[in-house]
């Protein structure tokens, strides 16, 4: 499994000629039980791949929505171990949806890269994104993940030139993640026309499917990006649904999954010639 699960999912998407919808949630937001319920509901709501954030106290590349999600998760007692336990629980009912862990370096360093990789593989995770580990610092982590056949996904950004994209590609497997805006998550909006040539650059550098994230909030934007990329990642807009439903005392899971449905539907329709649904 692991790398194979990601590859299989993108092969299937290619045969359907559609882009992936990648849903990001923060593990343990708003707490373990509801977080697990959301996680379990994501595939049926239309998530083709899932990014599971593990919370960190000082998330330097996150905008306010994911900062607040991390705080809610930490306040509910979320840890790296519980994040992996949540994934193991999810895997009991779903062996095909790839799960990519996403977070910051220190909780991993604290665990030890080798121990983390073993634990993550045992839990059924498929890949890892670490926001504050650029290619310059990636080798020890990439080696540890390789040993467990887990993918490391180094981020590509608008400031990465072609030479850097090649370096990034060398230690990236599964899919390429293109950060579509220079900025933190959930603030600026990505523009599909601006993103398209960068997606082509990233694809050329590594030959992997390219998913785009960091600036996509609405179904309209998701649909536009899905026409030019192999996948669309939405995170802040989903965790904002959690915040809103908590504020209004609504059922968290229903509200988040309904947002996922609308975004996934937009992505599925993106490459249909005459959308009539």
């Amino acid at each position: 499994m692991t790398k194979a699960r990601i590859d299989a999912r993108f092969a299937a998407l290619r045969s359907e000629n559609r882009a992936a919808f990648v849903a990001y949630i923060m593990a343990g937001d708003p707490d373990y039980d509801r977080g697990l319920e959301i996680l379990k509901g994501l595939p049926a709501a239309g998530a083709d791949l899932i990014e599971v954030g593990f919370p960190f106290s000082d998330p330097m590349a996150e905008g306010p929505p994911i900062q607040r999600a991390a705080l809610r998760a930490l306040d509910s007692g979320m840890t790296l171990s519980k994040t992996l336990a949540m994934i193991a629980e999810f895997r009991k009912g779903d062996q095909t949806t790839p799960i990519i862990l996403m977070g910051y370096a220190n909780p991993l360093i604290n665990r030890g890269f080798a121990a983390f990789a073993q634990n993550a593989a045992a839990a059924g995770a498929d890949g890892l994104i670490v926001v504050d580990i650029p290619p310059e610092e990636a080798d020890p982590l990439a080696d540890a993940l390789d040993a467990e056949n887990l993918s490391l996904l180094l981020l590509s950004t608008p400031t990465s030139d072609d030479a850097r994209l090649k370096v990034i590609a060398r230690r990236t497997s599964g899919f390429a993640y293109y950060v579509s805006v220079a900025g933190v998550t959930g603030v600026k909006e990505a523009d599909a026309a601006t993103v398209a040539p960068h997606v082509a650059r990233v694809r050329a550098a590594g030959g992997l499917p390219v998913c785009v994230g960091f600036g996509i909030k609405t179904p309209e934007r998701a649909e536009a990006v899905a026409r030019v990329a192999d996948g669309v990642v939405v995170g802040s807009a989903l965790v904002e649904e959690i915040a809103a439903s908590l504020a209004m005392n609504e059922t968290v899971t229903t509200r988040v999954l309904s947002k996922v449905e609308s975004l996934a539907k937009a992505v599925r329709l993106a490459r249909v010639a005459s959308p009539t649904v």
Partner: peptide
Amino acid sequence: AKGRFGDFGGQYVPETLMPL
């Protein structure tokens, strides 16, 4: 050359900032 004092230091920053 990698910005290390023994094991300490380094450049643990998001990719967006690395070129800068």
